[in-house]
């Protein structure tokens, strides 16, 4: 069974975010980019599935520009077999991204298409289920663990109040969240091998973005807090403030 993992290049979660001159994007100077953390988990999930089935290929796929080649190589270094770059601009409109991915994946024979549950930049949490809907494939979101058996995938997903076990037939789309798939580190051997693995580039079938960012701004400042005191003796005053001032107790 072949597996495609859709991955995205995003700023490192530690990075300081500054708004660019244009007021709608971020200033990328000095920003370190990584593979979005949940996408790394999705790659890990794909590799483990390939290992347990003992057959099939894992592809990493992204819509992005030059810098995304590095992200694809990181996926290859982890152990993916091949990579595809759809050259084009990724925007906050997840449906536009989903359309581009649909155009690429539509005609293909893929058993599983994996996504991260959300990308660390736009936090939209939508591209996976949108792509699935466009492709007419079943989709399970926020999957913490899964297993493929006899043409079906059994997924564990955490929902409010418990864990759900959901079954869907393959081909299927899953979005992966934190759980069983702690990503492996690429070995030196893996990094060397990645340089020789196939990486195909083609122009993206661009879809128009219809979600327009008018303004990007720093988060609203929380009013300066105060230290109520030190140690257990400060507790009565804290509780009084929570009741009388903040009115939350």
């Amino acid at each position: 069974m072949n597996i495609t993992v859709c991955i995205k290049r995003t700023p490192d979660t530690e990075t300081r975010i500054r708004v660019a001159q244009d007021g709608v994007g971020i200033d990328s100077t000095g920003v370190k980019y990584i593979m979005s953390p949940y996408d790394e988990m999705a790659v890990e999930a794909a590799l483990r599935t390939r290992e347990s089935l003992g057959a099939g290929e894992v592809e990493v796929l992204t819509l992005g520009e030059d810098g995304s080649v590095e992200t694809l190589r990181a996926g290859l270094a982890m152990g993916a077999d091949r990579a595809t770059l759809l050259r084009g601009a990724a925007t906050m409109d997840g449906l536009a991204t989903a359309r581009t991915l649909q155009a690429e994946l539509g005609g293909r024979e893929v058993g599983l298409i994996l996504f991260g549950v959300k990308a660390a930049d736009d936090d939209q949490q939508q591209v996976g289920p949108m792509t699935a809907t466009l492709l007419g494939l079943p989709c399970v979101t926020a999957v913490a663990d899964f297993e493929v058996q006899d043409g079906a995938v059994r997924c564990r997903r955490e929902v409010e109040g418990g864990t759900e076990v959901v079954e869907v037939p393959t081909p299927a789309v899953l979005t992966v969240t934190k759980g069983a798939f702690e990503p492996r580190y690429a070995s030196l051997k893996g990094i060397m091998a990645a340089k020789r693995k196939p990486l195909e580039e083609k122009p993206a079938e661009a879809a128009e973005s219809r979600l327009t960012v008018r303004v990007l701004e720093p988060p609203p400042q929380r009013p300066a807090g105060r230290v109520v005191g030190e140690g257990a003796d400060a507790v009565p005053e804290l509780v009084r403030l929570l009741r009388e001032e903040a009115k939350v107790l």
Binding site: P11, T13, R16, I17, V19, I26, M92, A120, D121, D122, D123, R210, L211, T212, V213, R214, V215, L216, E217, P218, P219, P220
Partner: peptide
């Protein structure tokens, strides 16, 4: 909130 709350975007839908 975007970038895990490190920035806020004001967006409009053209849909």
């Amino acid at each position: 909130p975007v970038y895990a709350g490190k920035a806020f975007a004001r967006v409009v839908s053209e849909g």
